[in-house]
Design a protein around this nucleic acid. Structure first.
Lengths: 221, 221
DNA sequence: TCGTCATTCAACAGAATTATTGAATGATAG
DNA sequence: CTATCATTCAATAATTCTGTTGAATGACGA
């Protein structure tokens, strides 16, 4: 190990990146950062973690070239360096989905119990939106919605779904989306809406994927 | 940490996969396995590592759903479960190449010193081969060559490049490839051939990428 | 300048990962 | 059955990773 040839040195660099992805909290942080830049404190609040812990994990991600930091007054805003990070996240997820039995178990035991219908694909959604036959709700918190959402979507944060649905016609189908294919909030929203007599489905994935597919994104200035 | 919601449980599963990729030796093992299935002993010999160490790393990879094991008599052959692993490897590598300054340094300091010409792309190579104007050499060991190589390639393991080149016309351009874009052997082969007066270039990547692109592969039964 | 606030640092204990060693297992050949 | 061989297991020590705590830094506003 003392003498390293250039090839091993490269593998070590690649391993730094993979190792940085190898912690559940850091993966969750990446999914949040995929929605847009965040300050340390904001991230910590989202994840319910001590600020110092989040700060240290962010620095691990920065050393791995996964996030970039930009100081803005008192705050330091962290953001994903580019979409290659999401692509790495996605391929790791693909391996896990295909080959880890435990993933199957978790997904079947929790998600499917609440969502027995096929999710809506992006293409389907675009057609449904063009035809004006569905209401699209973005169940993420307002700040994330403001930073970028699917054109035509209404922001209904998860906690407000019940109240919002009271004023919505039950005959019109609702499509819900949030942060990504495994984001729990859209599952919860769909479950709540169904229990209230609405017809509801999930979008197959969420905002970062929508943006990554090159589809238009609307922001609230 | 004691109570985990399903979302966190999923992140933990994804982290298992990423963590398994987070070790230089395991990455090197994956690159070797991308050439085809290998026994524990064969892998250990290739990497110059104790068998027990390789065995343990293989089991770590197996727990992460990255490799599969198949017993054949006394031997256990390990193989990558599917191409999703290579895609994960590739995206991790992409992140590192784009954002880790150290990768730049290593590549510039070592590889570029020996290879100042553009590598040949896959499409270019197919045209050159169709026109019959280049000699394509596969500088991997014979066993890897036998398991699958680019049609029309000649197997010239790295150690035999010098001897082989003596009998080859220096006027005909040589293209060399090996295990992948960072495989050292093709760089070394090109450097050796140039120092002997040949015109030589590297293929931009190697065998697993060729196969992954859906291009034809020839095997020696 | 001072106080406040967001972030980082430093130090610590507990946990996990790693390479090594030697013994145990499982399968084949004689 | 026994010997042999490939692989795995178990135990160990060294190292690294994690989360927590409290103090230090850096920037802003009064």
């Amino acid at each position: 190990m003392s003498i390293r040839n250039p090839k091993q040195a490269l593998y070590e660099q690649f391993a730094i990146v993979a190792k940085a992805l190898g912690h559940p909290l850091r993966l969750e942080m990446i999914e949040h950062l995929a929605q847009g830049a965040r300050s340390v404190e904001a991230l910590a609040a989202k994840l319910g973690q001590p600020v110092a812990n989040i700060s240290q994990h962010l620095q691990a991600l920065r050393r791995a070239g996964i996030v970039s930091a930009e100081r803005d007054g008192k705050f330091v805003h962290y953001a994903l360096v580019d979409e290659s990070v999401l692509s790495a996240f996605a391929s790791v997820r693909t391996v896990a989905e295909r080959h880890l039995a435990e993933v199957d178990r978790i997904v079947r035991g929790y998600f499917d119990a609440r969502d027995d219908m096929r999710p809506v694909t992006r293409d389907e959604l675009r057609k449904l939106m063009r035809d004006g036959v569905v209401t699209l709700i973005d169940v993420r918190p307002a700040d994330e919605f403001a930073l970028g959402h699917v054109p035509g979507a209404i922001n209904v944060p998860l906690g407000e779904v019940r109240a919002w649905s009271a004023g919505a016609a039950t005959r019109r189908e609702v499509v819900a989306y949030c942060r990504g294919p495994w984001c729990v909030m859209s599952f919860e929203a769909v479950a709540a809406l169904r229990s209230l007599g609405h017809s509801a489905r999930r979008l197959e994935d969420g905002m970062p994927e929508w943006k990554a597919a090159g589809l238009p994104v609307e922001t609230t200035a």
